[in-house]
Design a protein around this nucleic acid. Structure first.
Lengths: 249, 249
DNA sequence: AAGTGGTCTAGACCACTTC
DNA sequence: AAGTGGTCTAGACCACTTG
């Protein structure tokens, strides 16, 4: 790292956030892209003109996502295999991002919109009364012209009070719609993963080969304060490589 | 929390680790098992006689695993839905634990042990030379009398130098064997998840119903310093509920 | 205004690795 | 002995929520 390395500017954001973003950038493509270790915490602190605490907070963020490993007496070691991973199922929540990352353009078609009334399972998962109104949106997602996901979203009708739900463009990612129309940001997601052969309708829509099985993600999305706001069933073909980092802490 | 609450003892372990273990215990079954929030950081620090930093470190660990959420101006909110989850695929690496958690006794049978020579894929994944000797161990794992996993482990023969590998009891979890015979502790694991119908042999061993699909975890286990030491292919029936917490940070 | 968690500083000591 | 990351202290100020 050059002696004169400095933080670009202080645009109101947290220093530790800036530092971790900077370090990640340099890890992936920049001055540390060929390194085995990062400079010491004390050195980084001096170079960037912040306290060691700021550096440590930044490194903790990066470590939590698995990109570095900190070893006492040795230093901050870069985990190349992990930095180079794409499509981390444990980090990304949104499939359009995955499609773009894979070099394709995401499309949505076969949209089916309807009202249902919450059964016991959905009522409990979404924390609404049994029998209350739900908006159900089914759709097919394609990467370029390759069908890769069939998704069924369940949302409480009450979230969209004051908006005519049929006016909404449901081809957009559900996370974006919840944000735009309800001011709700999904930050956490409990996903149950199973393997399935699905029914004929879905297999046909996804053009699944006879012997091929599908991944089913049964997800509940939560906003801040553990508030469940959506459930979605997503059937994935083998188009994606779902990778997951599991760590003992 | 009672006024006289104190840390049980200081057995040489880190204070923040003790504090987080204590808090997790109280969250699950203890005095916070019915609470919506934890006491404030300052209060916890005073009650437990440590600095706020120690408390914050402990809370960070618990937050990273999704069990609490910290909200400025409000406090430390408990995520009940997450505390109550079992079988978190993103936290547990070892299936015997999952089986025990589900209330069954794990058994292993149909063990097949052999030597193979590394193909290109395994050579790259395990960071060994192509053609080098690998120990391959296939086995079936049961929960009680229910077959639920078929696993194929690949390990470099060189790891077991000085030990006759045929003398080892391969029914034990591979993590335990690596620890006991090689002094290697697997701390990280990159897992690729796919759905499969598997071949007839495996389907028969797992007594899979005709329409049922299987989850295949293709894992590479790493020790400290990004050292790959094992690859394993694990076929799971739907015996397990694989749950995963995904978080935006 | 009071209380909460979030960030940052400055400094200390410890455990571990390397030379 | 020197350098690394790990932990802990004490104190400060900030941003946000609640009464």
């Amino acid at each position: 790292m050059p002696d004169n390395y400095e933080l670009p500017h202080f645009g109101g954001k947290l220093m530790s956030t800036q530092v971790s973003a900077l370090l990640m950038k340099e890890l992936k493509n920049g001055i540390f892209s060929k390194s085995e270790k990062l400079p010491s915490e004390v050195e980084l602190a001096e170079r960037l003109g912040v306290s060691r605490t700021v550096i440590r907070d930044a490194l903790s963020d990066i470590e939590r996502e698995g990109f570095i490993e900190r070893v006492r007496g040795i230093g901050t070691v870069i985990c190349r295999d992990i930095v180079n991973l794409t499509n981390r199922l444990d980090l990304k929540l949104e499939y359009n991002e995955l499609i773009v990352n894979s070099g394709y353009t995401p499309y949505t078609d076969n949209i089916k919109l309807r009202i249902e009334y919450a059964d016991e399972e959905n009522a409990e998962l979404l924390n609404v009364d049994e029998g209350s109104k739900l908006i159900v949106c089914e759709k097919r997602v394609l990467a370029g012209n390759i069908p890769c996901i069939y998704s069924i979203d369940y949302l409480s009708y009450d979230l969209f009070s004051g908006i005519e739900y049929t006016d909404i463009d449901w081809s957009k990612p559900i996370f974006d719609l919840l944000d735009k129309y309800c001011g709700l940001i999904v930050v956490t997601d409990i996903a149950k993963i199973t393997a399935t052969n699905a029914d004929e309708f879905i297999r046909e829509k996804l053009q699944v080969q006879p012997k091929q099985a599908l991944i089913l993600l049964d997800e509940v999305g939560y906003c801040k304060l553990s508030r469940p706001v959506m459930r979605s069933l997503e059937f994935y073909t083998d188009f994606f490589d779902f990778t997951m980092l599991r760590k003992k802490f």
